[in-house]
């Protein structure tokens, strides 16, 4: 009996004593969307392979929870925030008028663009029901196609899924005098599920979406033209470019300056990210493998990012 307890105790003791990494342990959330996740995975692998850090990847919904984690010091950095979808930047990020409890590090290099989209089969091909649908000006003509049970005589526009995002769909609909009812599906999951199911049934739909995004790897969508973006006309215009950025907790620059330096040097273009997204979502490869393959192929690019004074 006693030996049993001693053995159990010894096993627990052995299990607890885990080896620590020389550079230290960093904690970072994994983004919900493939693009953000692969951006971060590249940074994580450089930190782990070249700079002797260990990165604990934490799965949680990207959103205000991440900001709370950074402010509380429980997370060290996070990748690829999209200004349009950050609901807390005005509160916490100095660059947007916040109190500085979350720190802006540097742009990712990926530039996002939002818009309204319809499936290509509506416009082109044999069964095309709306061949002339090109810009917002044509939308009222085709509103009958987008009618649903709940929208009555109006067409249905599937707007931004989350109320807090900077989409201002309602103002845009009113400003462009579109005879459409705005529908907000509550979560990204519901948004993409609705589009994917309608696409599978070859039904017409008009929905908000943004690039780069994995949904474009699955569905062939065409953008509906909006008046070009301008500060004065906003929100009755196209969206501004989303200059995505990496960010983290303010003290990270003091605790691990070389980590912040790496993040500041890091850049990834839209085209590069699109290739990575394709490999993950369409070819079904593992995100870790895709990131390490990219690192193997682009050594000359990323070696310059690694800070020399290590």
């Amino acid at each position: 009996m006693k030996t049993t307890f001693a053995l159990v105790g010894a096993a627990i003791g052995l299990a607890v004593a885990a080896p620590a990494s020389a550079g230290g342990l960093l904690k970072a959330p994994v983004a919900d969307w493939t693009g953000g996740a692969v951006t971060c995975e590249i940074i994580h692998q450089i930190l782990e392979n070249e700079m002797d850090y260990k990165v604990k990847r934490i799965t949680m919904p990207s959103g205000p929870g991440v900001a709370e984690g950074l402010r509380g010091g429980d997370l060290d950095f996070a990748c690829e925030t999209w200004p349009s979808y950050s609901t807390t930047k005005e509160k916490y990020v100095t660059e947007y008028g916040g109190d500085g409890s979350v720190k802006y590090f540097a742009p990712v290099g990926v530039i996002g663009q939002s818009g309204y989209f319809v499936p290509r089969y509506m416009i082109e091909g044999d069964g095309a029901v709306a061949p002339d649908l090109k810009t917002y000006a044509d939308l009222n003509k085709y509103k009958g196609l987008f009618k649903t049970l709940e929208s009555g005589d109006k067409g249905r526009l599937i707007g931004c899924p989350v109320a807090a995002w900077e989409c201002k769909d309602a103002e845009r609909i009113a400003g462009l005098s579109l005879d459409y009812q705005l529908v907000e599906l509550g979560s990204e999951t519901a948004h993409w599920a609705e589009m994917k199911a309608a696409y599978a049934r070859k039904e017409p739909f008009l929905a908000y979406a943004w690039t780069p995004h994995w949904i474009f790897a699955e569905l062939d969508l065409v953008e509906i033209g909006l008046p070009p973006h301008s500060e004065e006309a906003w929100p009755v215009s196209d969206w501004p470019e989303d200059v995505t950025y990496n960010y983290g907790r303010p003290d990270l620059s003091d605790d691990h300056p070389q980590v912040v330096q790496l993040i500041e040097n890091f850049r990834l273009s839209n085209d590069e990210q699109a290739g990575l997204i394709l490999a993950i979502d369409i070819e079904g490869k593992d995100i870790e493998d895709v990131a390490s393959a990219w690192l193997a192929d682009n050594k000359s690019t990323w070696t310059n990012w690694v800070p020399q004074t290590n």
Partner: peptide, 19 residues
């Protein structure tokens, strides 16, 4: 609210999204 539900639940969910 995650699947287009409305009402008080959506208010709770929206409030979480803006902390």
């Amino acid at each position: 609210p995650l699947v287009a539900g409305l009402g008080l639940g959506k208010e709770v969910y929206d409030a979480m999204n803006i902390a």
